[in-house]
Design a protein around this nucleic acid. Structure first.
Lengths: 232, 232
DNA sequence: TCATGTGAACAGATTCACAGCG
DNA sequence: CGCTGTGAATCTGTTCACATGA
């Protein structure tokens, strides 16, 4: 399949074809009128725009279950990421092989980052160690951090942090599940009678997907469809 | 602190106070004019709306590194989730203790789901097993699935699937990192000269956060700020 | 003729600004 | 008086529909 039309791509992705064309147009005019988009060329252009054509050395700090799972995660390499080092503070871990790499001790963190020109760090430590690790990463020159620890990190301006909360996804499923179960108030403690706009967001729950596969359509993000504030 | 104003909450969350008030108003009128919101009452109302006051038994299938990491994840219990069972297809895993629970064999999947009234399942198996596990979960009555396997699952109508791609978050960081590095084209293969709207989305990258902590502000979601289509 | 690329219309979400109530 | 709750104004993002060019 050498070329593809916006219509076909849109159907596959479950979005409107006009939106897709408009989005593509922001990257430049890579299509051919009357024909469509050259697949190979389009893939290259999008890859380049997203940074997939670059090599991104990353360090992973905290090689527990989660760190090991991440180190073994197949998707990284194909997206241009190269795990430059696995780092753990536990001396017992040092030298152990995880995902085919020797774990290095946290003492060498600064040197490792410097030697490899790392600008992206992944934190998979326990909550208590996260801020300290973060500070060291930033001091050593890391400017993007992916945080799996259940802590809010403070960083100076110019440093990006993304926090992944693995339970928030379950939360969202449970929220939808609750809706499926019926609108009846579960526990009649008191009045949610006047709950006006509840129907709005709820309409998203089971959108009839235009495509045949249904998977994360309708989704704005892990926290895109729940209120911003939530009790700890 | 018995009460809190929309202004304070908004500052803490890094959003506009009017938006916060409007969002809250969809749940009902739980504030007091001239005073603010009663913290305890507000927490309860939001918890109830989000389903935090319910007990959600879940099963986790695939107890490798990632499954074990999830089973040990502290955040679940506090959000109303109860891990009803850990399930793995490997007989060598059966009976092993992970996060204080004995791993059960996949043969018993249907019985476990039925006995515990489970409606939410977590798949952390290798990609090859995911669809099969998914089908069995659905057949056994599960209606919400959290999928960590790198596969798109097909499910019947009425079943919710959320896919978590751990590398997508890195992808987003790398995308921003690329922007920080400067607008100069990295590889001059050919013309992205006419790249018009690139400045639009880019403006989001380093928004001056209204709050003091900067952490996942500006974020729509793991895929909220990258185009919908991306090469495998 | 066909599918892109894009102004213009539309829809949805956010913010403003203030009436109303404790 | 202060802060909520909310219509109205504004802004942002999506979709329509068609001129344009291969």
């Amino acid at each position: 399949m050498p070329t593809v039309s916006s219509e076909e791509l849109a159907a596959a992705a479950g979005v409107n074809s006009a939106k897709l064309r408009k989005d593509f147009s922001y990257l430049g005019s890579y299509g051919t009128r009357g024909v469509g988009y050259d697949v190979e060329y389009l893939v290259y252009q999008i890859s380049r725009e997203l940074g997939l054509t670059q090599d991104w050395p990353i360090v992973m700090v905290g090689i527990g279950n989660l760190g090991a799972a991440l180190a073994n995660y197949g998707g990284f390499a194909s997206r241009g990421f190269r795990v430059a080092a696995l780092i753990d503070a536990d001396p017992a871990m040092t030298g152990k092989s995880v995902a085919g790499m020797a774990v290095q001790h946290a003492d060498d963190l600064e040197k490792i980052i410097d030697d490899n020109g790392v600008s992206i760090g992944v934190i998979a430590t326990p909550a208590g160690a996260a801020q300290q690790v973060c500070d060291r990463l930033v001091a050593a020159g890391v400017t993007s951090i992916l945080n799996f620890a259940p802590t809010v990190l403070s960083v100076p301006d110019g440093v990006d942090v993304r926090k992944v909360d693995l339970s928030i996804e379950l939360q969202i499923l449970a929220f939808h599940e609750q809706r499926k179960a019926g609108e009846a108030p579960i526990d009649g403690a008191d009045g949610a009678e006047g709950a006006v706009g509840v129907e709005g967001p709820a309409a998203k729950v089971t959108k009839p997907a235009p495509g045949s596969e249904k998977n994360n359509d309708d989704r704005k993000g892990p926290d895109g469809d729940v209120p911003a504030v939530m009790p700890a």
